[in-house]
Simulated assay, not measured.
Amino acid sequence: MSKIGIVLGRFHTKEVTEMLEEARAVAAKRQLDIVAEVWVPGSMEKPLALKRLLCRNDISGAVALGIIERGETEHGNVMGHAVISSIIGLQLEFMKPVGVGILGPGINPSQIPPRVRPYAAAAVEAVADLLASA
């Protein structure tokens, strides 16, 4: 059984907790053992937390869950691009998959509820598929 870690942004705690529930269910179904769940303030902190997990010899992959909601400025878009770029870099550096279940950037509040569970599930499925094909 492959072991994974999950990094979660607590800025939208209610929705991300629901994402975590879905991630746990899919991980169990795909025979992935979640050995670490790390809550961070928001998406900007996710790359460092992911790197710390990916450095661990017992972790084969990770999942990032959270939300970057549309704001009044371009901050969310800039942050979203930087975070995704960092996550891709970490995957290539460590040769370990990272499933991205981050809603946005630029998501409107009304768009969040129907996407919470599907995005979390897809992020875990991506890690499971990449680990299975390694």
Rank of each mutant, 00 (worst) to 15 (best):
W39V: 06
E45Q: 09
D58Q: 04
V38T: 15
S60Q: 15
L54E: 00
P41A: 03
K51R: 15
A36S: 15
E45P: 00
I67G: 02
L50R: 05
Q31D: 09
L65D: 06
A64L: 05
E37I: 02
R56A: 02
L32C: 04
V38C: 01
E37L: 09
K51L: 04
L53I: 03
S43F: 03
R70E: 13
C55D: 13
D58T: 11
L48E: 12
R52I: 12
A49N: 06
I34S: 07
S43C: 11
G61L: 02
V40E: 05
V63C: 02
I59S: 01
A36R: 14
L54P: 05
G42E: 09
I34A: 02
L65R: 10
N57G: 13
I68M: 10
I68P: 03
L65A: 10
L65T: 13
G61Y: 04
A64D: 04
L48D: 10
S60N: 13
G71Y: 11
I34Y: 13
I68E: 02
K46P: 00
E45S: 06
N57R: 15
V38D: 10
V63E: 04
G71R: 14
V63I: 08
L53A: 06
G42C: 04
L53G: 06
Q31L: 12
D33G: 03
E45R: 01
V40Q: 00
L65F: 09
V40H: 09
R56H: 05
I67W: 12
I67R: 14
E69S: 08
G42D: 11
Q31N: 13
V35T: 14
D33P: 03
G66Y: 14
R52D: 13
L50F: 05
V63G: 02
K46V: 15
